[in-house]
């Protein structure tokens, strides 16, 4: 995964609360191998009618080039399916701006280079109102932790660890494998202290 520090793109609004991961990608698409791409599944049942035709009124259908989603509280709650993040990333979304995120979704996002940018509910509402049905150029800086939308710049929240990870594109597996010996030593001491923590054979 490659890191990034700034993103310049286009913001669009999804003015809904509690967009759970079942809505971001319905379960029936999840047996697809990632190599086939998940972008076409993004918010599928909100974006398509029952026959599978794209709904012209849906924001992401009107603005398929959007790269930043502005939405309401508790985005990505529910199922731990990382496929929800794949659907966003494969559609070209680089950041989601919301007052809050599901915990598992946010971690999955960072693991795939997608920024979950937390702003106050008031700031999100202001952006939702100012954008309306239109789009606007947006610039996001991970080094400054700022979002510039039109002529306004505001700060967003992001854990330091996650910021570093997004900027550097770090992969945790590589980091942890470097600590293999220390981890093995921990395991042995822990097993000696609590042997019942291993399954009976």
């Amino acid at each position: 995964m490659s890191g990034w520090s700034t993103h310049t793109g286009t913001a669009v609004v999804l003015p809904l609360e509690n967009v759970d991961t079942d809505q971001i990608i319905p379960a029936r698409f999840m047996s697809t191998p990632r190599s086939e791409g998940y972008g076409r599944f993004l918010l599928h049942d909100l974006a398509h009618d029952a026959e599978g035709a794209k709904l012209p009124g849906f924001a992401l259908n009107r603005h398929p080039d959007a790269s930043v989603l502005v939405t309401r509280r508790n985005f990505g709650g529910g199922s731990s399916r990382e496929a929800a993040v794949y659907a966003l990333v494969d559609s070209g979304i680089r950041a989601v701006i919301a007052p809050s995120f599901g915990d598992i979704f946010a971690a999955n996002a960072v693991n795939n280079g997608l920024l979950p940018a937390r702003v106050s509910a008031e700031a999100a509402e202001e952006m939702i109102t100012s954008l309306g049905d239109a789009t606007a150029p947006v610039r996001i800086s991970l080094t400054e932790l700022t979002i510039t939308l039109g002529d306004r710049t505001l700060a967003f929240d992001l854990a330091d660890t996650w910021r570093e990870k997004l900027i550097n594109g770090w992969d945790d597996i590589d980091l942890t494998l470097q600590e293999r010996d220390a981890n093995a030593a921990f395991r042995d001491a822990y097993r000696a202290a609590t042997p019942w923590a291993w399954p009976a054979t």
Binding site: D103, A107, N108, T161, N183, R187
Partner: peptide, 23 residues
């Protein structure tokens, strides 16, 4: 007990450990 995403599942498979901020 808590749920994790696919990248974290791969991490646990590969290392039997997980990086996590304490809630």
């Amino acid at each position: 007990g808590f749920g994790i995403g696919a990248t974290e599942v791969a991490h646990v498979l590969a290392t039997q450990t997980l990086r996590q901020k304490k809630p």
